[in-house]
Design a protein around this nucleic acid. Structure first.
Length: 258
DNA sequence: ATAGTCAAGCTCTCCAAGGC
DNA sequence: GCCTTGGAGAGCTTGACTAT
């Protein structure tokens, strides 16, 4: 999908991009192959050629970070087909909400294995950086509002500036608003019995129990936190597929609307 | 080269929603 | 309950094109 994206170009928004797609300029190769594009002056077209050739070089070099500032945050899912294999699925637990809350646990699920860091035991900036090492993309649920700002506050500049696929907003765009647990139900994902009914609010309670010496509470909290990241990995490709279908629907609808 | 017009991107504000 | 973000809508700004 990223090689179909023209919104990385200056003064190109969704409307212009949609027009290009409709006129048969479906991808970067199509654009570069044409001598001129209606609505673009020669100079502007030339500048865009250079920008797309640059983008292509970064893409081939695996430099996902190059696109972080070029793509609007709501469109960064477009990089998932190219970099999803190296995505880090991230979820945090905290001891509450609001400005006084602290991160109690971070799980990072990457390439099939999950690493969990616990406050007071091994959750440090270095450990977090190490857990995210090699990731080319981040996937979260509501991470743009909650997880990432929280980590940025507690561990400044540790989380790399990578493209971020926030499933909450992706799902809402394809007509599936709601929380992560609801989404899991809609996609038929079942949690193991012991964490099936644990909520985010319970996570706060479990952490407090652990602080009082209840070993089992920590185990359950870890299981819950890890389950969140594993389920993100199951959901992401499905939501991406729905977003791709939506793009094609939008192109068809724009055609009918002419 | 300049001015007018138009389309579309940008910016700002307000509201709703989800995280634990 | 607090905080942040995205979406929607309105108004402003910018760039491309055309005529002179």
């Amino acid at each position: 999908m990223i090689r179909r994206s023209f919104i990385i170009l200056p003064r190109v928004g969704k409307a212009t991009e949609l027009k290009m797609w409709r006129s048969g300029v479906a991808c970067w190769d199509d654009f570069l192959a044409k001598d001129n594009i209606p609505g673009l002056s020669g100079d502007r077209k030339e500048g865009m050629n250079v920008a797309l050739e640059d983008a292509d070089r970064y893409l081939h070099a695996g430099r996902a970070d190059y696109f972080t500032s070029l793509l609007p945050s709501v469109e960064q899912w477009r990089l998932f087909s190219r970099f999803g294999e190296d995505a880090a699925y991230l979820d945090i637990e905290t001891d509450g909400l609001g400005s006084h809350a602290h991160t109690t646990m971070v799980s990072v699920h990457c390439k099939g294995s999950t690493r969990t860091l616990i406050r007071g035991i091994d959750l440090t900036g270095e450990a977090l950086a190490s857990a995210l090492q090699g990731a080319r993309m981040l996937v979260t649920y509501n991470g743009s509002s909650f997880d990432l700002p929280m980590l940025q506050k507690e561990f400044p500049f540790v989380v790399p500036r990578l493209p971020h696929f926030d499933l909450r907003h992706g799902a809402a765009r394809v007509g599936m608003p709601g929380g992560l647990k609801r989404l899991e139900v809609e996609f038929g994902i079942r949690r193991p019995q012991e964490v099936a009914y644990v909520t985010g609010e319970d996570a706060v309670y479990l952490w407090k129990l652990w602080l009082k010496g209840r070993e089992n509470a920590l185990k359950l909290l870890m299981k819950y936190n890890q389950e969140d990241t594993v389920n993100l990995a199951t959901l992401a490709p499905q939501i991406e597929a729905m977003l791709l279908r939506k793009v094609d629907d939008d192109i068809r609808r724009a055609g009918r609307g002419r």
